[in-house]
Deep mutational scan, measured.
Amino acid sequence: MAEQVALSRTQVCGILREELFQGDAFHQSDTHIFIIMGASGDLAKKKIYPTIWWLFRDGLLPENTFIVGYARSRLTVADIRKQSEPFFKATPEEKLKLEDFFARNSYVAGQYDDAASYQRLNSHMNALHLGSQANRLFYLALPPTVYEAVTKNIHESCMSQIGWNRIIVEKPFGRDLQSSDRLSNHISSLFREDQIYRIDHYLGKEMVQNLMVLRFANRIFGPIWNRDNIACVILTFKEPFGTEGRGGYFDEFGIIRDVMQNHLLQMLCLVAMEKPASTNSDDVRDEKVKVLKCISEVQANNVVLGQYVGNPDGEGEATKGYLDDPTVPRGSTTATFAAVVLYVENERWDGVPFILRCGKALNERKAEVRLQFHDVAGDIFHQQCKRNELVIRVQPNEAVYTKMMTKKPGMFFNPEESELDLTYGNRYKNVKLPDAYERLILDVFCGSQMHFVRSDELREAWRIFTPLLHQIELEKPKPIPYIYGSRGPTEADELMKRVGFQYEGTYKWVNP
């Protein structure tokens, strides 16, 4: 592979701008107003304001973009700056750019259920340069409990009458099928589907988006991507930290609602779906819905739930269990780990287990898709061969690698495990991989909904998990304890083995 010439960040961002501006969906010269509902909250200060700053800094926003914060707290732009700027990672050389960014910011205080507050917000936006005809993007960085009041008031008082209007809704989209349907029906009564952007930030990850290209742009994968060759698929999300004093919020939802029903299920769809007619948003989402419709409700015998306990040999936070978090209700049975087996009941995947695993306070930070292939028929190497695996590593250190057998150097035919490896950090030294939120917010500006969740996708996802969630809430089974920093409950490994996964433990990928 030829040595790549190092590029400056300015040059890299210039390439990104060229890609972005050559499309006809990006209205570079139009006025846009980006409204952050819930501007005083954690999500706004840690993710949304920093993301908008990065896009502005790199010249990736339309030229005439204004940012308006809205929340109940009586704040000023200076207050917003004070709480969000520490997350910007701005350099001293960017000081003038930073001043320009905050000059485009404003803030309006108001209630979430008060019509007069929204009329005041609308008047404020109209007073901005060309504000009355601007395109408006409303980001709901809010708890779902206020979605209905907020969307109703936005629709009645704050819509642009000339430009387009788009609304970005953060997960969780309800707690179960019934609450999700209620919320979807409410929002759909106010906005068209092409105006609604239900954001799952995992769909903005580079390697998640790469799944489609790997599958449908490489001839070698087509013939082997089926039940005849693939023994099982494992989708993993692991965090090495616990709730760390923020367990009160987590306890309301648990690990299945927080990660599995959305992030992991979306990745499953991209692995299992048929080739779409095109890369058009609805063509892709149509195929994802077909996959979900082929999955039956989760069966309790295919589920393992766990909850982390303190590690007596650990240090600091590792010595504390979930129930030691003062914000967690006493005696909570909320799971911090889950392993679930699903089956896609169609011709391509009949009988292939899709194993979804996620948890907190585990032994490493990792998100990946792992396809394990069947054993080689007619073994001539005296059971020395391990199964081939194709691994798409989402985070950290984005990579695609194939675990395969090669001859060990020497005189004899002794096979050993090795890999074919594409590590993004080595291959793409001159490429700026956008943060997931950067990519998705740019998608909203461009009107691309491919990486957002459609209402029928959402409904099918909740259909699969709601009976299990209701059973857990009714019966309150005690989750299996696992030690902070471990791989999780051993019962999860036993479940995976029972459905056909072979864990060798003899080879570990190392970032080159």
Rank of each mutant, 00 (worst) to 15 (best):
S84M: 14
A231E: 07
R219T: 13
E239V: 03
Q209P: 09
I196V: 12
I36W: 03
F191H: 03
I255P: 06
I167Y: 07
D100R: 08
T76E: 11
E239N: 01
S8W: 04
E85R: 05
K95T: 11
L211C: 03
I196W: 04
S180V: 08
N126W: 07
A44W: 00
S106F: 11
M159F: 11
S84D: 08
S157D: 15
N105G: 04
D114P: 07
E18P: 08
S189R: 11
Q209C: 08
R9H: 11
Y197Q: 02
D42E: 03
F88N: 14
A109V: 08
C232A: 13
L75K: 10
K238T: 04
R246F: 00
L61G: 00
A39N: 07
E94V: 05
R219W: 05
F34Q: 04
G38R: 00
D200C: 01
E148L: 11
R17L: 09
K152Y: 15
I234G: 09
H201F: 00
V77N: 13
A78T: 14
Y107K: 01
R257K: 08
P92Q: 14
E99G: 08
K47S: 04
L183K: 00
R120D: 13
F221D: 03
G248C: 09
L235F: 11
I15Q: 07
S157V: 09
N185G: 11
G59D: 09
E244V: 07
P50I: 06
E85C: 08
H155I: 05
I234E: 09
D251L: 02
F216E: 00
Y112V: 04
K82R: 10
I256W: 02
A78P: 13
G248A: 10
A90E: 06
S106I: 14
L121G: 01
M159R: 14
D251S: 12
E93M: 14
L142G: 05
G38V: 00
L55D: 05
R215I: 03
P50A: 12
D42H: 05
Y147V: 05
V108Y: 13
V213Y: 12
F34R: 01
D176P: 00
F191Y: 14
R175F: 15
L130F: 11
P92K: 08
L235T: 06
T145M: 10
E99W: 02
Q178S: 14
I234M: 08
Y107E: 06
V233P: 02
H129K: 15
